[in-house]
Design a protein around this nucleic acid. Sequence first.
DNA 1: GTCTATAAACTGATAGAC
DNA 2: GTCTATCAGTTTATAGAC
Lengths: 199, 199
Amino acid sequence: MATRRDDILDVAKEIFAERGVKATTVRQIGARAGMVSGSLYHHFGSKLDMVDAILHALCDEILARYEEIAVSTDDAVERLRRFARYAFSLVADQRAALVVFYNEARYLVKDARFSYLNGFDRRIEGYWSDAIDAGVAQGRIRADIDTRLFYRVIRDTIAGAVDWYGPKDRPIEDVADTFIGILLYGILVHDGDRAVPQS
Amino acid sequence: MATRRDDILDVAKEIFAERGVKATTVRQIGARAGMVSGSLYHHFGSKLDMVDAILHALCDEILARYEEIAVSTDDAVERLRRFARYAFSLVADQRAALVVFYNEARYLVKDARFSYLNGFDRRIEGYWSDAIDAGVAQGRIRADIDTRLFYRVIRDTIAGAVDWYGPKDRPIEDVADTFIGILLYGILVHDGDRAVPQS
DNA sequence: GTCTATAAACTGATAGAC
DNA sequence: GTCTATCAGTTTATAGAC
């Protein structure tokens, strides 16, 4: 049962992603939703309330799924792979909402009502960091890896993918596997110990 | 000789990076530059002219340096390292301008006057792709690497770094070396062929 | 639940004095 | 080169009819 409210949110999500929240006018949202701007205010108190509804739903969904994956396997490397596959699947399935999140969160968090976005970021980083630490403890991942930088590579690559990934690209699961493959194995040719870090 | 015009651009750059171009008002720029908004129009024709001046200077500087690095060594892996070090150095030295570029280019290019940003992007990707291809030809880089995705990892990690890197972090050269180390060698422990890709 | 109409504030930009 | 003053357009949001 897609309510009218949900229809409006879907429309708003797309336009926010296209033009940015600040550059999107309530008139544009109304026009594409089939009503005048004033009518939107029967469903929402303000433009930012729409942004809030979009991002709250997104964060709740993502956190719930990360928790499921976190407890789904003890194999740390396999857990990294599952996180990556899920995160990239969102690039295809929740593109618009992710664009809004990645492009606008940095401005939105200045407003106290959006400070939960910081908490969301911290918890997601925690899931990845825990998997990396577990991989080190299991002797699979090099102990000298900079966990924070490694997480940044992952986060920022996924954030960037919402801008370049499209339907004509390979299936998103392939992209995820290729990506995690690069991070796990590196790009160098391995013969003997030629590919072992110098330092 | 820092002209008045340059002073204004430095101020505009910072505010554009803080709040986004659309959300920045000419009154804010004027206030921080020590003049009323109307006075800005003696130096610039419009707000977008300021954005253009900022991004044009940035692109010119970056392209010139990439070209120097491209011809500085034939060793493809070393060239990747030098590109990475330079790109990360910009995160520290040109933070504000880079934030504007990475956050706003996707909206700006809809305006024909900013279409040069697409050309800039293509040329930078070309420098990286050429180095990767050369590395494959030299037998140093695995031939099955997805060049485009590999470049995306690099580009998006650097784009993301402008948001998290700060003065209290390690020197930016260390970050660059650690980053390129992850991409070259991967994060897995190498013993025997345990770390060799399955596929 | 959607409309018309409009208030109230803000925005980029200009004209002309100094 | 900066100011005062202001225009013309746009924006979010509200009030009240239907």
